[in-house]
Amino acid sequence: MSSAELHHHAQTSAPLPPHPEKATLEGRNKILGIWLLIGAETVLFACLFGTYLALRGSNMNGPTTEELFQIPMVAAATLILLTSSLTSVLGVVGMHQNNVKKVQLWFGITVLLGAAFLGLEIYEFIEYVHEGHTFTGSAFGSAFYTLIGTHGSHVLFGITWISSLMIQVARRGLTLETTPKLFVASLYWHFVDVVWVFIFTVVYLMGKVG
């Protein structure tokens, strides 16, 4: 559908097509764009992972990874974030069913889970600082907080993004303009979760087994 058609569509408010997010060129561009952005972000995280791996032994006088990490709490955070990925999928399913309530419910839960994850992460950081693992204390500290912090800021951005989209859906309903945005935000959210899976493996599990 061309952009002109989109405009007519918006004016006539005809029912949404089955895949509203891909129905317009704008929507398709957005989806392609987010995939490209995810590609770039992957490289960014790869660089931070590399830096972390190079510096994780440089804990100087601070605690080592084995002393520091507590798997149960991190595992809980992982579980929360993975669940939020699932709920965002359910939100997209709701979107395909043109069901505003379902969309709001599941994306709302996604946001809450994301916030819970962030809360846990902040709590974890405070703990670590008390144990003498600080951002400025050693190269390991700098690399750790930069990697996890960058991921955390992505989670924060995701929460803000999805919340603002929920407001827009509440105001304007599911249209050919809001649906691509929701779809793209959920793709971004999956990406953030996948990065966390790598962090859980590379930072925490590998940090525990040495």
């Binding site: 830096t51 510096l55 032994g57 440089s58 804990n59 100087m60 951002f135 400025t136 204390g137 050693s138 190269a139 390991f140 500290g141 700098s142 690399a143 930069t146």
Partner: peptide, 10 residues
């Protein structure tokens, strides 16, 4: 931060 500070493991 200490990414490049050799004395602190950078």
């Amino acid at each position: 931060a200490q990414f490049f500070e050799v004395a602190l493991g950078g």
